[in-house]
Amino acid sequence: MATEEHAGGLQIHPMDQFVVKPLFGDGPIEWYTPTNVTLWMGIAVLAMIALLVLSTRRRAIVPSRGQSVAELFYGFIHKMVEDVAGHEGLKFFPYIMTLFMFVFLSNMLGLIPMSFTTTSHIAVTAVLALLVFLTVTLVGFYRKGIGFLSMFWVSSAPLILRPILAVIELISYFVRPLSHSIRLGGNLMAGHAVIKVFAGFAGAMGVASVVPIAAIAAIYGLELLVAAVQAYVFTILTCVYLRDAVGDAHH
């Protein structure tokens, strides 16, 4: 707990931005307490409604700017699901769109200074990844029955290698939710912590702090990219996993 004391007098608390606080009062955090998590998730929902519902309320044949953006998101994810998960995967399009919009908007809203990044919390990303994992597993068994297990039995490999490969495949299958969640949470946490560390340098360096401030600006640009790319990666990996469940196994 005394780590900061060893940090050479720099007052850097890169992890403070991730603290979950109750919105009202100071009480203990029960499962129903409205916290900053609630606030920023609510803002994400409102942003989603503004982006996809309000902007398209005129249903114009010639789209306005907002409607073009909404159509862009729709077309992007629709094409991704169709290309990666196959035509069967389109049944899960609303589900994947939900994940994408939530992750993308949370990442982007988290980049507003002083905001709270819900997707930087392992609890959130783990639930998202477990939802995907459970969906894929249940849908796979529902659609293919026991044949879903043939995914682990690599029929193109030599017979001797197959049991070993099956074990590896099985392990990699169960590691999926772990890597899926930690990739997203870790990326965002790392980026925000790095910005905060540089901000701490800026406070301690006097005139020379233009250097860390410039670095923060550069990292902020990188973080914008990371926020978008991680949402994209999370979604496309969901599609890839979903293909195992709904698509052709030997595709």
Binding site: V84, N187, V229, V233
Partner: peptide, 16 residues
């Protein structure tokens, strides 16, 4: 898409 997926897999280990 494959590029991004590959990068994501490689990057995940670094994040670990």
């Amino acid at each position: 898409a494959n590029l991004f997926v590959g990068i994501a897999f490689a990057e995940a280990l670094g994040i670990f």
